[in-house]
Design a protein around this nucleic acid. Structure first.
Length: 523
DNA sequence: GTTAGGG
DNA sequence: CCCTAAC
């Protein structure tokens, strides 16, 4: 079976704008999760010609597709491979207006719906600052650096093309590995051992991150020291102080009760909770032999038992990502924290509490690393979680992910990745009931979700309180059921709640207060 | 059409 | 959320 994610021109075979071509996919035939997805990527020259992207470019874009909730769009910079990255962690306040360089809405232009790509990298730090995108791309995928990277040339499975080493060789990984101390060459070897293929990327940071992700099979790149024993990751150190900054979490993941002040830029993963599960999966795949390894799995699982992400968690995460991904990029804001805050929220735990006599499921999310935890009401889950991070990282999307994808186009090409699941937040079937006065009123209240609140707060911080229609239009475009009045009302309630019980360290109000204060939307 | 504020 | 006055 072959699944292709192709990058091609439009019907005329040309793009109007130079840059990376659109990403199309024909995810029509992948039957199994293991089916590889082949990406074909072209770069669009200034004259509209399509030039095959170098392997590293391709890989970079692929990574962006999978890792980042990114969008690759055409940009008017001749011959320059640039990813237009809509990264909700760094975009607000960090990315300038890249969004509408071609009059094509990125969401239309690039139908890779990254929202449902649960697994993603925590790409924090400067590498995705706008001015650095280019260098980042060049650095890691510069033209002329291409080699035999085993990716996508002829639309064949990448495992069967020019790969020189098709299987990871974990035997080369043994003992303690401190990525920080490795040279580029050693990193390359480690990379090869981890992923079974070579790379020419010379970006140490990139390599370290990639390897870290590969080893943990998560997007957790916080660790750079790993201990490999018998082809298994038995331990990973957390010694990388430079990345973590001062961000030592005072938060006990098991209780999720503590708050910490500053973990901005902390490249934590959402996937850490998945780690246990996916590591096993990865071993299965990478060792290439499923037999006889079950025992190790269970051992390992017992050694480090991590709670699997709740359905609630997954749903919320994907929702936030989807909404924020569709949001506009914000111009520079006063504090760079904003962007990171709104984007970096991590679930610490979930627990049930009784609030105002009503039981709600609170996810004690650390909002944007502010450590502020906000409760939110449980809802039904609307999408299935993505199971395996690494499968996506290098194999692309397959199987169950296809439920999020539609192959809407005719012919074999120009099919676009699209979110099929239109239920959930985008369902506008608001039940209304006629009122006595002849008017109508909505029948059901719709609980505000964490992500909605965050979006509202961010909208206020961006456009200012009172500009509700603006916020509605720009930040809540996809929330058809939220009117500007709703936003206003919610904001009023938030303020009321936040001041109801000023910083007393107890109660939800202080949490809201702290959050709003942190977002600099209240004094 | 929006916004602010009371219900 | 609704309603309405006041932009």
């Amino acid at each position: 079976m072959e699944t292709e994610v192709e990058v091609e021109g439009n019907d005329e075979g040309k793009f109007e704008e130079p840059g990376f071509g659109k990403i199309y996919s024909s995810l029509s035939s992948a039957k199994q999760l293991t089916d590889p997805v082949v990406y074909k990527l072209v770069r669009v020259e200034g004259d509209g010609r399509l030039v095959p992207a170098t392997d590293d470019e391709v890989m970079e874009v692929k990574d962006l597709l999978v890792d980042e909730k990114s969008e690759v769009c055409t940009v008017a910079d001749v011959g320059q491979p640039i990813g237009c990255i809509s990264n909700d962690r760094s975009s607000p306040g960090m990315l300038p207006q890249l969004e509408s360089s071609e009059g094509l809405s990125p969401s239309e232009n690039t139908e890779v719906d990254p929202d449902k790509l649960n697994a993603r990298l925590e790409e924090t730090g400067p590498s995705f600052a706008p001015s650095l995108i280019q260098s980042h791309m060049h650095q890691s995928g510069g033209v002329g650096e291409c080699s035999n990277a085993p990716v996508l040339t002829e639309g064949r499975a990448l495992t069967s093309t020019t790969v020189t080493t098709s299987k990871p060789d974990f035997s080369k990984l043994n003992g303690e590995i401190c990525l920080d101390n490795l040279s580029i060459k050693e990193l390359h070897e480690t990379f090869k051992a981890t992923f079974g293929r070579e790379t020419t990327v010379k970006d140490k940071q990139w390599l370290k991150r990639r390897i870290a992700m590969g080893l943990t099979n998560s997007c957790d790149v916080s660790a750079t020291t790993f201990i490999i024993k018998d082809n298994k990751l038995v331990n990973k150190g957390k010694e990388d102080g430079s990345d973590n900054g001062d961000g030592a979490l005072a938060n006990d993941p098991a209780t999720g009760t503590t708050m910490s002040g500053g973990q901005q830029g902390l490249p934590i993963s959402h996937g850490s909770q998945l780690e246990d599960q996916v590591v096993s999966d990865k071993r299965n795949r990478n060792i290439g032999d499923n037999s006889g390894s079950e025992d190790h799995h269970t051992e390992q699982r017992a050694a480090k038992r991590v709670r699997k992400p709740t359905k609630r968690y997954i749903e919320e995460l994907s929702e936030v990502e989807s909404k924020e991904a569709s949001g506009k990029l914000r111009p520079i804001v006063k504090n760079s924290l904003l962007g990171q805050m709104s984007s970096n929220f991590h679930t610490r735990s979930a627990r049930n509490v009784s609030l105002e006599g009503r039981t709600v499921v609170t996810r004690l999310d650390s909002l944007g690393g502010s450590g502020i935890q906000i409760p939110c009401v449980s809802r039904v889950r609307r999408s299935r979680p993505r199971k395996n991070f690494m499968a996506l990282l290098f194999l692309g999307v397959a199987d169950e992910d296809r439920q999020f994808l539609s192959t809407g186009a005719v012919g074999g090409h120009h099919k676009v990745l699209k979110q099929v699941d239109s239920s959930g937040d985008s369902d506008d079937n608001v039940v209304t009931v006629p009122t006595s006065k002849g008017g109508i009123r909505r029948k059901h209240h719709r609980a505000w979700t964490l992500s909605e609140v965050m979006k509202l707060v961010e909208g206020v911080s961006r456009y200012g309180a009172g500009r509700w229609s603006e916020i509605k239009r720009l930040a809540f475009a996809s929330y058809s059921y939220r009117t500007s009045v709703d936003l206003k009302d919610k904001w009023r309630n938030l303020l009321k709640a936040s001041f109801a019980q000023i910083p007393s360290d107890k109660g939800v109000s202080s949490l809201i207060y702290n959050y709003l204060h942190h977002m600099q939307v209240i004094a």
